[in-house]
């Protein structure tokens, strides 16, 4: 194994993990926003056969790739506080998981 491989900076890896968290959180927030607001539901209906699912999922995917590019540009070639960034990423993933769970919508917004 090459020494250079072991010594590779963790910045790009931290960027990828955090971007994954951001994408998931944006997906979750977009999902509950659509449940909360008819106007947002209409605004995210980018393609009628799929309804607002296209807008919600696309926002999450765009946030994922865009934040990855930006964070990678910032952290490329750098060492980061990986544990802390990974923990933040996991919290963001949890936000995505929580807000895509239908009982949470009903709990927060009322209704069945």
């Amino acid at each position: 194994m090459a020494t250079t491989e072991i010594n590779k900076p963790n910045g790009p890896v931290a960027a990828a993990l955090l971007a994954g968290g951001i994408g998931s959180a944006v997906l979750g927030l977009a999902t509950i926003s659509v449940e909360a607001s008819a106007a947002i539901k209409t605004a995210l209906n980018w393609y009628n056969p799929v309804g607002s699912l296209m807008g919600k999922s696309s926002l999450g995917i765009i946030a994922f790739f865009l934040s990855w590019v930006i964070l990678n540009t910032i952290w490329k070639g750098k060492e980061t506080n990986f544990s802390r960034i990974a923990a933040i990423a996991l919290v963001l993933v949890a936000v995505g998981l929580i807000f895509t769970f239908p009982p949470v919508w009903h709990l927060l917004l009322g209704g069945e």
Partner: peptide, 21 residues
């Protein structure tokens, strides 16, 4: 229909990290 989209993002992150290191 919603939670499924978390899967490809997380799987891509995993593939990238293993590719990188």
């Amino acid at each position: 229909e919603h939670v499924a989209f978390i899967s490809p993002m997380a799987a891509t992150v995993v593939a990238f990290v293993v590719q990188y290191y």
